[in-house]
Each structure stands twice: as structure tokens, then as C-alpha cells.
Amino acid sequence: MGFLEILADIFGAILIFLKPIVESIGEWMVDWISASMEFLKQNFSSELTIYIVIFIILIVSGVIINIIWPGDRPGTIFSKGLDKIEEKFEEKLDIPNDIRRCKDCGNPIGDSRVCPLCGAEND
């Protein structure tokens, strides 16, 4: 009990010493909070919809931002998408470029000597 009394006295002394600072901080806190609440009461006190919308926006944007920038490595969703596109692009590029084409019209003729489109002879 004696120890608790000493502790209470110390805290009391600290609070009395800090009273002028704490009071002014308290007044400032009350001022801005009152002003904010008054603003909310005048403009957004009719229905909950706006707050529900804010809640949903925060959740959805939080999910999206975490998927894109998880924090421990560069973004996932866009970089993965980009990788897939690059892979597909590379696959397309794997198509051999040595297909024989007609000298006159440029139509692919394969192994045939005569172009099926224009009839030109290709040696």
C-alpha cells in the first residue's frame, strides 16, 4: 500500500507540474474535434451510406494496393501479366522465319516451285 501511495504521489506531482501544458493541449484537442464533429453533424449526419461507401472503398483499395505492391518485392499482378504477355510474344517469335515466299507477290509457297496465288515460278 505504501508503495502505491508513493507512486500515486509521484504521478500526481507530474500531472500538477504538467497541468498548464496538458490543459492547453486538451483545449486544442477539444477545439479541432468539436469543429470536425460539428462539420460532420451538419453535413453527413443524415444517413450511413457515405460511411459504408468509405469503408468499402478502403477495403477494396487496400486489397488492390496489396496485390500490386505487397511490400517485400516489386508488384505482382502487373509484372505477372507482363511476363505472360512476354512469354506469348516469345512463342509467336519462335515461328521460323525461313518460310519460302513468292518472289513476286510475297505469298508463302513452302516447298512448291510455282506460287499458288500468282503462278510465278520460284527457283
Binding site: 450511413l48 468509405i54 469503408f55 477495403i59 487496400g62
Partner: peptide, 24 residues
């Protein structure tokens, strides 16, 4: 009304805060 309204905003902020990486 006010408990629900401000509680929703606090909960939304809590999601954003706690789902973000440390010290971000």
C-alpha cells in the same frame, strides 16, 4: 448512428493499416 458511422471508417482504416507492409 455515430458509433456505427465512425466505427466503419476506423475499421476500414484498420484494414488498410494492418494489411500494409511494416514501416511503410
Amino acid at each position: 448512428f455515430w458509433v456505427t458511422a465512425l466505427g466503419l471508417v476506423i475499421s476500414g482504416c484498420a484494414f488498410f493499416t494492418h494489411s500494409s507492409p511494416k514501416q511503410s
